[in-house]
Each structure stands twice: as C-alpha cells, then as structure tokens.
Design a protein around this nucleic acid. Sequence first.
DNA 1: TTTCTAACA
DNA 2: TGTTAGTA
Length: 119
Amino acid sequence: MRISELARRTGTSPRALRYYEEKSLLRPDRSASGYRDYDERAAQAVRHIQLLLSAGLGTSVIAEILPCIPDDTTVLAPTCPELLDGLAEERVRITRSIDKLAAARDILDQLLQTRPVRD
DNA sequence: TTTCTAACA
DNA sequence: TGTTAGTA
C-alpha cells in the first residue's frame, strides 16, 4: 500500500511516516517510480511506534525495541530479555521526572497557599 | 492525482 | 509537524 493509505489506516500523517523512516523506524520498499510501498507488517509496526512514542521513548530507543515486538502483540518481555534492563532504567528515569514535577507542584501549592488539588 | 525530496515556518 | 515548490 502507499503512504496515504497507511497513514489513513493508522491515524497518522504521511509526513509522520516519512519521519519514522528517516529515523530508521520503518523501511518500506520502493516502487519503480520511487513511491514508498508498505506491507501489512508496517501497519502493525506503526501502531507499535505510536505506543512507544506515547510511552515517552525516543526514536533511537524505539528503533532498538521495535524488532523485538512480534506483529501480533504489545508485549516484549518474552522476546528480547537484553532490552529489559534498558527499559527498566528508562522507567526509573520517568519515575524521577515524576517525582521532580510533583515536588515542583508542591512548592507552587505552598506559594499559592492552596490546598493540594487533584487534577 | 499522488508522491517525492528538501527546506522553511 | 505542517506546508510549500517543482517533479515524475
């Protein structure tokens, strides 16, 4: 399928799909005319990319992880044990970020003399 | 018409 | 990320 169809089927834009390719997240074939030609697996890969992106992972990390996710799942635990440590570290970084943000919010709550409110 | 690349907003 | 230009 061509880029616009893949974009439509995955809810992204052709622009984003070209960007993914530039970051080596996707490697579509090319038609004789130079048009990108995507297969079914690409559609699944894009969904994985979007999931990983929403997890806050960078494109370089995603490029490593992607080949470890089977087309039909969203879990990689059983597949590539080597990556698990790296992702665990990523999780630690995220936790630290959350803690810092929470601390910043607490300070603002004090300055504003408001009682902590849940969003 | 659709897509391509590259560059600019 | 969107958009634009000039092509094939």
